Each structure stands twice: as C-alpha cells, then as structure tokens.
Computed example of a mutant assay.
Amino acid sequence: MIKYFNREANSYEIEKVAGDKYLKWTYSSPIGMKLLELLIKKKFFSKYYGWYCDTGFSKGKIQKFIDNFDIDEKEFKKLKSNYKCFNDFFTRELVTEARPINYDKSVLISPGDGRVLAYENIDINKLIQVKGFTYKLTDLLQNLELAEKYSKGSCIILRLCPTDYHRFHFIDNGICDETIKINGSYYSVNPIALEKIPKLFCENKREYSIFHSENFGDVIFVDVGATCVGSIIQTYAPCKKVKKGDEKGYFKFGGSTTILFFEKDKIKIDSDIIEQTNTGFETKVCMGEKIGLRL
C-alpha cells in the first residue's frame, strides 16, 4: 500500500498501482528476485515490452487502462479512437487548460505530473533514496566536478507512476545543454522496489542535462528509466532558448522518475512538500503547479 499526500484535497490517499501484485511478488519473493536479476531488470525485457506497446496489438489495452485508473478523457488533446497503439495513448498530449502554468518568474513549477519528495541542504554523498538507503551524486552522474557544485543545494524527486501524464517540461526560461546518457538496468522505480534495491537510481539507465535557467541557476535534470520503459525521448533542441512550460521530453510506457538538483541558495521548496517528505510521504503534484520560490 502506497499512501501519498494530496495537497489540493489536504488529505492522504492510497495510490492505485498498475501491476501491484506483480511488483510485490517480484521484489519480495525469492523466486521473483531471482527472475528480476536474470531477466526483468535486463534491457531486452523492457525493450521487448516497449516494442509491443508500439504495435497495434496493444491498442486493446487502452480502454481497460482508462477504466481501471479513472483517466480523465476530457484532458486528451485527441480522441482515444485516434491512438494507434498503447504507447501513443500513454505518451498523450493534453489540452492546454488541463495543466495551467504559473508564469511568475519567482515561482518554481513542477516539471511534470507525479509524486514529489524534496530535500534542502543536501549532502551529495548521502542523498536519500528511501529511509535507510542513500546514494552519492557522483555515482548518479558519474561526474565528480559537476556533483560538487550542488553540495548543500536542493533535490526534488518526481516519481511518475504509469497512470500519470508522461511528458516532462522546462521549469523556467533558459537554455538546456546536450543530454548525456548513462546505460544501466531497468528496475522499477516504485517505492516497493526502492525499499529493496540499494542505489537504484544509480543502477538504472538514466540521462541528464544541465539547464541554464534565468531564475534558478544551473539545474541538473536527471531522467531515470525503469522496467518496461521502452524509451526516454528528449524532444527539446539542445543549446537553444526555451520558455517556461515548454516540453523537454517524454517517457514511453512504465513508471519513471525525474530528479532535479539546484545549487545552494537558489530556491526555497514549499513547506508542505518538505513537511510531508520529512514524515515519509510523497506529495501529489501536476505539471505547472507551484512547488517552490526563487531565493
């Protein structure tokens, strides 16, 4: 059971997890863990499932997914009948009014839909994955010089579950460098898996880029792949000016994670998000929603 804080309703809710029984069995049973290491975490497994979700054979999954997880069809930019495969639906664009963006220059917005954990004054050698599990920023980025710039800064972890809108966006006006890709495994990023696999973010396939923002300094965007994520697609043009809210990219099928790192004294994260993080709960947010302020 995954409980999160819904700040809009000011209440705690239980997350509907796609493949809940499968995840618990895989990451809790001896046979499941063995199968995980032998097959499920491998690129081949996720690539094959990603291929299937790109074919017309997967189209029949769309309506069942909408019904099971109460997906709001009014937000879709095009009719569901026009989706050619499951990934076409999964990476759907939304109508503009579905995700209003706070354009105040001092406001930090969420880059996507999901559940957020946030940390200030971070120790880059003991970043928190979950209680009891930590990792080093140098291991995540494989770049010591870059990692050291973010000592005592802030970290925001946005976990996208399969039911979320899966496009991610820029948090400010600015210029984003080329994306650097790091190969790795394909563990799930669900909390069930995070509590079982040490240094999971450092184990998984991931991509990162430096976003030179106008109002929040140099921000590291890290996009982490996961089980059954066919691809991480970057749609932005590197080294060209972008505007707040512009699309940066999207994940194909699967739960995924975007992690943001900010330099020291650049932002102040909203107190309710920090409070929920300190008590062990994620906070549900939507793309474009205020999650902090510029210092």
Rank of each mutant, 00 (worst) to 15 (best):
M1V: 02
M1P: 00
Y4T: 08
S11D: 15
E13Y: 13
V17H: 10
V17L: 15
K21Q: 12
K21P: 00
Y27R: 13
S29D: 10
I31V: 14
K42H: 10
K43I: 06
K43Y: 13
S46M: 07
Y49G: 03
Y52F: 15
D54T: 00
K61A: 05
I62T: 09
K64Q: 15
F65W: 11
D67H: 14
D72C: 06
K74D: 12
E75N: 13
K77V: 01
K78F: 04
Y83N: 03
K84S: 12
T91H: 11
L94F: 15
L94S: 10
V95Y: 10
T96N: 10
I101G: 11
N102A: 09
D104P: 02
S106I: 06
S106A: 14
L108I: 08
I109A: 08
I109N: 10
I109P: 03
A118V: 01
A118I: 02
Y119D: 02
Y119Q: 05
E120L: 00
V130Q: 10
V130G: 08
G132C: 07
K136R: 11
L137M: 14
T138S: 15
Q142V: 03
L144P: 04
E145A: 11
L146T: 12
E148T: 12
K152R: 13
L160E: 04
C161F: 07
T163I: 13
T163G: 01
D164G: 06
I171P: 05
I171S: 09
D172S: 07
N173L: 05
D177Q: 14
E178F: 06
T179M: 12
I180P: 00
I182K: 15
S185Y: 14
S188R: 09
V189W: 09
L194N: 14
I197T: 14
P198H: 08
P198K: 11
L200I: 15
L200V: 13
F201D: 07
C202T: 06
E203G: 04
Y208E: 07
F216C: 06
V229I: 15
S231F: 01
C239K: 12
V242D: 04
Y250S: 02
T257R: 08
F262L: 05
E263N: 08
K264G: 01
I267F: 02
D270V: 00
S271G: 01
I273R: 02
I274Q: 06
I274W: 01
I274A: 04
T279R: 13
T279Q: 14
F281G: 03
G288L: 04
G288I: 02
K290T: 10
I291E: 10
L295W: 07
